[in-house]
């Protein structure tokens, strides 16, 4: 299923790294057919299928929802299934693994750090009492849903970590996507776990590490606005502090 074949081509420079063989990553150039409706991922698949089967990268859904195929495309973190060649043609397209992550092989980065931080923010509904199933669903109005909905759209593609200079300089920073999940659950009317998440969210590697560069929200392919989530967490934990310290009789 391809459109009419033309002879136009486009050059892809792909950062390659084969552990045990390469001392350091280096770019390799590939000429691939240029098609108006191709995304960068299509070009990579063409390379793997027809030119060099040893090129490694992750992908699956090719519709921007599985979050596998994040890469640096000409220096910007993008989902390669959503970055069209026509945005760059006829210029060369430079593809690199997501920045700020260790490179396992070619375009495959290590997710270990994120996968360890994820459970630390307790991204699940916390309740003091579990509602029995036969009591039916919790009531949640469309407005209450709207309150956290945006922060529930994160696909864990990690483009935001690649865009965050704080994460590069301070890798212990919990980071945009995981903190957006803190906001997502804190703001859910069904949740009672805000205090449990506070220690990590407002702790030494939490929201106060963020200097509000705002690039996480710019590169987010799902408009999650992690920078906004972090600012809201800062505001609420500052208010919390005021309540506890300035007006200690007001709480507990």
């Amino acid at each position: 299923m391809t459109s009419s074949v033309s002879s136009a081509t486009i050059t892809l420079e792909v950062l390659r790294y084969r552990p045990g063989r390469d001392q350091a990553p280096a770019f390799q150039s590939f000429q691939v057919p240029y098609r108006e409706d191709w995304v960068v991922l299509d070009a990579l698949n063409y390379i793997k299928d027809q030119i060099d089967g040893s090129l490694s990268y992750r992908w699956s859904c090719r519709m921007g929802v599985c979050g596998s195929c994040g890469m640096m495309v000409n220096g910007t973190p993008r989902l390669s299934c959503a970055a069209f060649l026509k945005e760059y043609y006829p210029a060369t397209v430079r593809v690199e693994p997501l920045e700020h992550f260790p490179i396992e092989r070619d375009l495959v980065i290590s997710l270990d750090d994120f996968m360890q931080k994820l459970p630390a923010v307790r991204p699940w509904i916390v309740r003091q009492d579990d509602r029995p199933l036969d009591a039916g669903e919790y009531r949640q109005t469309p407005a209450e849903l709207d309150w956290y909905k945006q922060f529930s759209m994160c696909i864990n593609c990690l483009l935001c970590y690649s865009a965050c200079p704080v994460y590069e300089l301070e890798p212990r920073f919990i980071g945009p996507a995981a903190l957006a999940l803190v906001a997502r659950y804190n703001l859910d009317s069904r949740d009672q776990g805000r205090e449990q998440r506070q220690e990590i969210a407002a702790g030494p590697d939490g929201v106060w590490d963020c200097t509000l560069v705002g690039e996480c929200s710019t590169v987010c392919p799902k408009d999650v606005d992690p920078a906004g989530a972090i600012q809201r967490l800062k505001l609420s934990s500052a208010l919390e502090w005021v309540k506890n310290v300035v007006l200690p009789w007001g709480r507990r």
């Binding site: 990553p25 200079p165 300089l169």
Partner: peptide, 16 residues
């Protein structure tokens, strides 16, 4: 895995 060196001119990488 390969760890890319931290660039201390990071603020020049992107306009933002």
């Amino acid at each position: 895995p390969y760890y890319r060196p931290v660039r201390f001119d990071w603020w020049r990488k992107r306009r933002a």
